[in-house]
Design a protein around this nucleic acid. Sequence first.
DNA 1: ATGTTAAGACCGACTAGTTGGTTTGTTTTA
DNA 2: TAAAACAAACCAACTAGTCGGTCTTAACAT
Lengths: 212, 212
Amino acid sequence: MAEKTLKERIIDTALRLFEQYGYHGVTVDRIVTESNASKGGFYHNFKSKDELLYHIHDVFITYVLNKAQDAYKNYHTPTERLCAIIQSFVKVFHLYKPHITVFYQESTYLKPEYSQKINEKRDEFKQVIFQVIREGIIAGEFRPELSVEITGMSIIGMVNWTYKWYKPDGPMTIEQIAAHFIDFILHSILTEEAKQKAENSLFFLETQTNVI
Amino acid sequence: MAEKTLKERIIDTALRLFEQYGYHGVTVDRIVTESNASKGGFYHNFKSKDELLYHIHDVFITYVLNKAQDAYKNYHTPTERLCAIIQSFVKVFHLYKPHITVFYQESTYLKPEYSQKINEKRDEFKQVIFQVIREGIIAGEFRPELSVEITGMSIIGMVNWTYKWYKPDGPMTIEQIAAHFIDFILHSILTEEAKQKAENSLFFLETQTNVI
DNA sequence: ATGTTAAGACCGACTAGTTGGTTTGTTTTA
DNA sequence: TAAAACAAACCAACTAGTCGGTCTTAACAT
């Protein structure tokens, strides 16, 4: 049961190599060699090198989207929802760093058929965040003068960029980083009124690290 | 004088193609064809395809670094300096969008000799931002509980991500986007005291669009 | 139990096409 | 006229993908 299938070995190896050298910096031959597989084994499991790239993209975006949707369902005010989404989003970087690196570096090279599927899920994810911000403004928790799109993209950008500098064994835990982001974002978007309330109720950020 | 040199034509064409198809999605032959040049002309101007990639990287990072250093010199309080740096940084996206896209998508593929040079300037740029934040905290303008590094990377990430969604002919001007970012960031990092002061003095953000 | 057969998993030498870079020759400029 | 700038045919290396074949497993008949 500890035995990994050939397919899993190939994916793990490919992730490691793609993260370091980029999709085009790694040949199928090298993936095959380093995963103790063979050309035949590779093409038995994947239609093409492109399909492997797609698979990596899909695993990641599917996971993130599900987490965001779960967070939306499990909480019931915009502020809590936003915090939960960000927290789960940031935490993904711990488990899926190679996936994410590949996702943001190599998506240019997805074949149209594949990139369309990926983009649909990616847009869905964006919409969840936009929706929460929109609802937060309507509910009076978030500042009304905010632009939903730019605010959303600011948050997404801030968090996504983490993949460029986060080191899993660095000085800060992923939870600490998430807490910083949330602090940063809440200071920006909450109304003065909501900030007062939040000071009393958002202690859950400190204690509840397992949001999902 | 309106005549472009062959070298310029090659760079322009390469930028356009790299932005759309990625470095590995574009062959030297295609660059040569679409810029009305020839293989000979290309290799007369560039040692290799890699050197062209390096050149594109260098033009961008050098420009951004200079702008940041200018902004630092021309202003004298941390808050003003930070605003000026962000404003000039964001504006770069208007002129240099293809450079930036290439910069962040393809830097993996720079040969070690080249990537070292680029990284030096990139680090220098980061240090300017970190320095301003550090000084802002010491001066009492920025909240003392902020982590310099995470705050810095949050800002850099938020701004950099713009290259993924900014459309030069979209509904928002680059100045509006810059103003949003500055608003977002100042709300996060200023102390309550500094916010009071800022409300009176930071009107310069609205009027003074040519910071540099 | 034992032999038979079928199917899926896997192997690795080979190929056809592509691509960065070179070489050789020509034009333009100073 | 010499040197710089450019053109075009050419080449060597590399790489994604193929294809005939082997090994393992399991169902099934005897």
